[in-house]
Amino acid sequence: MSLVLTSTRNEWAAVRGEAARAGLALLRPGLGLILPVGLALLWELAVYAGWSTGRLVPPPSVVFATFAELWSAGELQTHALATMSRVAAGFVCGVAAGTVLGAITGYSMLSHRLVDPTLQALRSIPSIAWVPLFILWFGIFEASKIILIAVGVFFPVYLGVMGAVISVDRKIVEVGRAFRLSGFAMVRRILLPAVLPAYVLSLRAGLGLGWMFVVAAEFLGASTGLGFLLIDGQQLGKPATIVAAIVAFAILGKATDALLALATAPLLRWEDRHGRR
């Protein structure tokens, strides 16, 4: 009797445990949402209840309304498109320069000694410091903005590629040598695939910096772009516009990073990572 009881109890516990686990598995992606959504609801409630006017910190409903309004007017799309094309152009230039220079300084010790110290010195300059100079040199239109973004993208890509090429396992390179690879064949068949994981990581870091620098660039004399929207909101005293632009930045930054990660994932299937799920 007691035996039967225990066994049913155990089964019941197992069933319950399984259900709980299944529920948790469904909920897990949502766990991260609890904090931000909770805070937003709390603030919405606070403004609704009249504890605060919400003028300087607009409640979510107002931000959303502004967002929808900007969207339906087509403004948001125009600004987002302007910003995205600047980021894209700057990213492409920065990645191209960073990849080529990083590969060269990683591969050849001589060019490393010649070029790397200068680049490291330039890297320690806060990049915003370039802005006045770039404006003098390249004007206040697109060129100076794109170059500023490219500078921001360049350094993480350069460092990532150089470090990765330098640290390619000598033993793997030797396999290439044993199969009589040299020069371009060695780069294509051994070095390039070996640095791919580090390269993808540096591209993502570069893209992140690109999004940072586009704001700096657009703060300075732009008439379009999400950065312009930020300044516009400040000058016209419309915090909801500012927050809407910030939200747009967050969405775009996250989306482009996810796209980059997704696009590069098939190249890295071979990796032996502990973080594999």
């Binding site: 793997i172 396999v175 009589r180 070996a194």
Partner: peptide, 28 residues
């Protein structure tokens, strides 16, 4: 210099991790 008529096997397998097993075997 390394010669096509001479093959070498090292102490470690030194397989190229980004190639499948078949890709590694066909590397040469």
């Amino acid at each position: 210099a390394p010669h096509e008529k001479i093959g070498i096997v090292f102490q470690e397998p030194r397989l190229l991790p980004w190639l499948s097993v078949a890709g590694n075997v066909g590397f040469g």
